[in-house]
Design a binder for these strands. Sequence first.
DNA 1: ATAAACCAGTTGACCTGTCAATTAATTTCG
DNA 2: CGAAATTAATTGACAGGTCAACTGGTTTAT
Lengths: 154, 154
Amino acid sequence: MNKHNDPSYRTPYSFVTFRLARLQSGLNAQATAILKSQAGLSIVEWRLIQTLRMFKDASPTEIAAHVQIDKGQLSRKIKSMVSKGLLTVEIDKKDQRQQHLRLTEDAERLSQRMMPKMEARQNLLLVDVSGEDLAIFYSVVDKIEAASKIRDIP
Amino acid sequence: MNKHNDPSYRTPYSFVTFRLARLQSGLNAQATAILKSQAGLSIVEWRLIQTLRMFKDASPTEIAAHVQIDKGQLSRKIKSMVSKGLLTVEIDKKDQRQQHLRLTEDAERLSQRMMPKMEARQNLLLVDVSGEDLAIFYSVVDKIEAASKIRDIP
DNA sequence: ATAAACCAGTTGACCTGTCAATTAATTTCG
DNA sequence: CGAAATTAATTGACAGGTCAACTGGTTTAT
């Protein structure tokens, strides 16, 4: 019996959600520190850039689906990234409601420069985790995420 | 080889941090929905209540250490919870800088009523996860969290 | 053809999270 | 003792996150 299932060791962190919240706050602080000091980017900006490298010319709605960001927040973020020279916005010819977002050269260069650092960080986070354990970890993440969509708790 | 380590399937979510961020956002939405609709509480309020049930008469500083919340945010939250009738604040007799927080009867009742729901939710999240897998999951969470404290990425 | 329904993005309001500066009480130490 | 350092909590400023109402373009269905 270890500290994670010993009932006599019951703290708020017996809840997996509490543990994950604390983990998330540590990861955010770390990523914020790296990105801000080395590239002047926020986490949201970094995620948007990476998402646009994957899904070229994506629209805000498509991006929102991929990175689970609120479309309102996204709209404002796009505006600020355009004024920072990281993005350009183009209106779809066929459907004037839709925008296509594109990374500028500056954003591509920033991404090229930071990617090795962010991958090094990823490796650092997982350096002591075996392949088998990581696979199990991801499968549990998948299961918890699926269950998080349920809204009716009996 | 599964989708989590297939390089040809590389998306932003190849980053464990992206996966965890998305998971966290789903969990937050779920907890927010349950707590708001059934008890009129926010997640932060729920966490504070649970933490105070564990660490009775704790001071804001002690709580901040346990739940990893910013002391500024905590100060404001305490004020609002006092005005909602969930907390009382007492000044320490020996050290007039320190406060001791106590749950009101209302807060205790709310907690009693909601705890079974929140435990049911916890069980729902983990229902398909075996004990062994959960132990591995927690050990990976612990390792990632430890590595998240490192600030100097080579 | 056109009114209703729908969809993409914007805006406003409000709460949460983080950082830094400040105030006031207590402790340390010359 | 009493100035300096430390600690607890507060406050201000600002980015991030969520919700809902709104604007304007497009599709659907009569």
